[in-house]
Design a protein around this nucleic acid. Structure first.
Length: 468
RNA sequence: CGGGGAGUAGCGCAGUGGUAGCGCACCUGCUUUGGGAGCAGGAGGUCGAGGGUUCAAAUCCCUCCUCCCCGACCA
């Protein structure tokens, strides 16, 4: 059979584009950098949203919505913020048939508007912490777009919180990082992210500290899959987020912001995909099992429908594929491209023996089970597959991570994966030297892998690599 | 913004002056269906736009537009 996709080893970026197209995830939009998310791609994003939303709400944050349009003047209040974002702003200068008095920015992020309203809403320490989350779209004008990974408009979640003091803000930024982001990525996406602290040069514009989750992709490059920022009192000062404390003294709040986006779909593709296409972990999959009717003869159609119903009853997300006017091979390939964890192949040959065939996407394994055992077997397999995917991704990441001592060795290791390098080895112009080879510090960790509180703690380790 | 390409059917492309073609996809029918089925028939085009040369332009000339790829930022 001719291969459907460009092999990863031949051209990884082209493989990625092929998967996006053939698995029917997305199309390019009419305006450069925009993206049309197709139903299957969107169903994956909806599953991500559902899992993330539950984790975000579990921290006490509540969903709200803020406007797409932001007055330009809001941006100009914070020097680093405006400097960081101005090259990628889309600005509305005309509306209603005339030129506007003040240009309006299409939000690239919402710290400023949300700051303005937090300022209105916080008067007493009893109003704090104020924990908000927004699901929406943002626009950052991109020169080099790639579907899901970097598009001019993208879907995301941005959380914004205000706290009575620095310690509470710092704790919350870490809580989101671990309990929402890391937990989701490890346990649902089955991607073993490295969590750590960004260096000053990689920090969010206007933040005093940025924390990150970095996943390793199939080509050894790093993908930033979620970030959580401590904003200090920068935005509180500029937008008047203050309150009276329990002694009646006026105090400035401490704020955080944190975001994750549909870029995670790109992480899913490149984190688990293979030359046969996407591989979706069962905990995430919008379709966990496809019941594939080989041909509708000798009652196999009825058997397939019955089996699909049994799978639903067993709590499995099922899709019945009885489009027998399309060849079996074509349909099997399509489900494989879409990364559906289990295919249940139902045909007269097996049914004559009282059996059906299960095909596992992640391993390529096929096994025969009796019709009666099929539904419970599939239901029981899903957690096993989930665990195997995480184990496999973890092993691959560890094999592709080298412990090194010098900048030169780090650059060499970054050709195929990550390097762990003593942060001290990058003192002075180390980051600039990495940058010349398109390599950067993805994050800093303590020797035990935990997240540092400052980048001048002794003995820190820099995780270094190429990135998306 | 600097350098390099490309615009012809939904997608990928061929077509160096004689009036539009191939592969895939699509539609109809028949035969198929256990890893992208076969055969037959069919539909689909202001050849990026405008101007010029010519008996004749997808093809040659001029102008414009758009898109893609490589160099500085980013979820």
């Amino acid at each position: 059979m001719a291969s459907v996709l460009t092999p990863q080893a031949t051209d990884f970026p082209r493989w990625y584009q092929d998967v996006v197209a053939k698995a029917e995830l997305a199309d390019n939009g009419p305006v450069r950098g925009t993206m049309v998310i197709r139903p299957y791609g969107y169903s994956i994003w909806e599953r991500m949203q559902a899992e993330m939303d539950a984790r975000i709400k579990a921290t006490g944050a509540k969903n709200a919505y803020f406007p797409l349009f932001i007055p330009m003047s809001y941006f100009e209040r914070e020097a680093e913020h405006v400097e960081g974002f101005s090259p990628e702003l889309a600005v509305v200068t005309h509306a209603g048939g005339k030129e506007l008095e003040e240009p309006i920015v299409v939000r690239p992020t919402s710290e400023t508007v949300i700051g303005e309203y937090m300022g209105k809403w916080t008067q007493s320490y009893r109003d704090l912490p104020l924990l908000l989350n927004v699901w929406g779209n943002v626009v950052r004008w991109e020169l080099r777009p790639r579907l899901f990974l970097r598009t001019t408009e993208f879907l995301w979640q941005e959380g914004h919180t205000a706290h009575v003091d620095e310690a509470d803000a710092a704790a919350f930024a870490r809580r989101i990082l671990h309990e929402a982001y890391e937990d989701f990525m490890v346990n649902v996406l089955a991607i073993p992210v490295q969590v750590g602290r960004k260096t000053a040069s990689e920090r969010f514009p206007g933040a005093i500290n940025t924390l990150t989750c970095e996943g390793m992709m199939g080509d050894g490059k790093s993908l930033q899959m979620g970030t959580s920022h401590e904003l200090g009192q920068n935005f509180a000062r500029l937008f008047g987020i203050d309150y009276l404390d329990d002694t009646g003294t006026q105090q400035l709040a401490w704020t955080t912001s944190w975001g994750s986006s549909a870029r995670m779909v790109g992480g899913l593709i490149m984190g688990h995909g293979d030359d046969q296409g996407l591989v979706v972990p069962p905990a995430l999959a919008p379709v966990q099992a496809a019941v594939l009717l080989v041909k509708d003869q000798e009652g196999s159609g009825d058997a397939a429908r019955r089996l699909a119903a049994e799978l639903v009853d067993a709590g499995v997300k099922v899709e019945l594929d009885d489009r027998v006017s399309t060849s079996f091979g074509r349909r099997a390939t399509d489900w494989e491209l879409k990364g559906v964890p289990v295919r249940v192949e139902v045909g007269p040959r097996d049914l004559a023996e009282g059996m059906v065939t299960l095909a596992l996407r992640h391993s390529g394994e096929k096994r025969s089970v009796s019709v009666a055992e099929a539904a419970p077997t599939v239901a029981a397999l899903l957690p096993t597959i989930q665990a195997e995917l995480l184990a496999r991704a973890t092993a691959r990441r560890d094999e592709s991570t080298a412990e090194v001592k010098t900048v030169e060795e780090a650059v060499e290791a970054a050709a195929t994966g990550w390097a762990k390098l003593p942060w001290d080895a990058l003192a002075g112009d180390g980051e600039a030297r990495l940058g010349r080879d398109a390599v950067s510090v993805r994050c800093l960790q303590r020797a035990d892998g935990t997240v540092p509180d400052a980048d001048d703690e002794p003995g820190l380790v820099a995780i270094v690599g190429r990135s998306y």
